[in-house]
């Protein structure tokens, strides 16, 4: 069978020690049995390693930082599209998703660039600050949580929580407080960095298990592969992990993706307690950096996402291999300064 030739643009080429998912997504697409893919890399920085991986990335362009806004981003993508005829674009950073979701119709109808992203409502309702409501709506347990806007509210927490509890920032950071005094400390520390509100979350102990999954936006979970981290870097990122055969976890994932009609790739982070209960801690609205493990297990999620974006029919995967491992490694590429010059001065490579 002749493979279908398409061009896919991918962000997140920062394959560093806390990697973006771009390169794993590209590897998955390059191994597609269905598509022959030309890859356009979209980068924010001039030293994103993916820029220099010419066997994976065919051509690269710098794009404006998300803070520059959708108008500037659109202008840049229009310029790129004029030269490249991109069929599908896969953004991979949390911070850029809002803009791409906002632009998705315009990209599709004016530039012919298709995406397959969650709706703005879906994107918003799985935010940390409202995850508890998300859990109730989609029938998955989420540690009980509450938003605080004032440090004095910590006094009243004893009515609803028992210590220890987790003090979380709106975007990042989480600390476990054993006493109200510690909670007050963390409140100040985290709010100084990420602002208000502060999220107070019930502390749930157990093993962390993660799932990479993809939903078709109509209530079907196309694929899901659970993984447990085996080796963690000092930044808390998985350096090695193993696919799990956990039917209950697959069932929960199907339910979350199904009920929320999730559209696109995602990563679900759970805690499995000693009693065998699963609590959803976070839902990331894009593929994780370890998404290539799904390919290794027999489910090519990025390929499915491209098919969905192209409005081709996609059947849900029925199984995957358990006990497959990924072991990450880093690699020193040798690069001529001319290449760095090109991306630095022209914004293209």
């Amino acid at each position: 069978m002749d493979k279908k030739k398409i061009t896919v643009a991918v962000t997140g080429l920062n394959n560093i020690d806390s990697p973006g998912p771009g390169i794993p997504v590209i590897r998955a697409l390059k191994e597609s049995r269905y598509f022959e893919v030309r890859i356009i890399g979209l980068s924010y920085e001039t030293l994103e390693p993916g820029l220099y991986m010419h066997d994976l990335v065919d051509k690269s362009y710098q794009i404006p930082m998300p803070s520059a806004g959708t108008a500037t981003l659109y202008e840049r993508l229009a310029y790129i599209q004029d030269k490249e005829h991109i069929d599908v674009l896969i953004p991979n950073f949390d911070a850029e998703l809002y803009n791409f979701i906002k632009l998705s119709d315009k990209l599709k109808y004016e530039l012919g660039i298709k995406t397959f992203l969650p709706t703005l409502e879906q994107f918003e309702e799985r935010h940390k600050s409202v995850l508890y409501e998300f859990g109730e709506k989609n029938e998955v347990k989420v540690p009980f949580s509450k938003m605080l806007f004032n440090v004095t509210e910590i006094n009243d927490l004893k009515n609803e929580f028992t210590y220890p509890l987790v003090v979380k920032g709106k975007y990042y950071d989480a600390s476990i407080a054993a006493t109200p005094e510690q909670a007050v400390n963390y409140f100040y520390k985290i709010s100084a960095k990420w602002g208000l509100p502060i999220i107070i979350q019930e502390f749930v102990s157990g093993n962390e298990v993660n799932v990479t999954a993809i939903g078709d936006g109509k209530g079907s979970c196309i694929g899901a592969v659970p993984m447990r981290k085996l080796y963690i870097t000092d930044k808390g990122k998985a350096w090695a992990g193993i696919s799990l055969g956990d039917e209950q976890l697959i069932e929960i994932t199907n339910r979350v993706i199904g009920n929320s009609k999730w559209k696109g790739g995602c990563e679900l982070e759970f805690i499995k307690t000693k009693e065998g209960e699963y609590y959803l801690l976070e839902m990331n609205p894009r593929f994780p950096a370890w998404v290539y493990l799904s390919v290794g297990c027999g489910q090519n999620h990025p390929e499915s996402l491209v098919k969905l974006a192209l409005e081709e029919s996609v059947e849900p995967f029925q199984n995957y291999q358990t006990g497959k491992m990924f072991v990450r490694y880093s690699y020193d590429q040798i690069v001529d300064i001319e290449e760095f010059e090109k991306i630095s001065t022209q914004g293209e490579l």
């Binding site: 300064i337 760095f340 010059e341 630095s344 001065t345 022209q346």
Partner: peptide, 17 residues
Amino acid sequence: ISDSGFIFNPTSGDSFS
């Protein structure tokens, strides 16, 4: 110094535009 305005200082390893 190249025509694109890219400057490379081999002594320090810095580059400029």
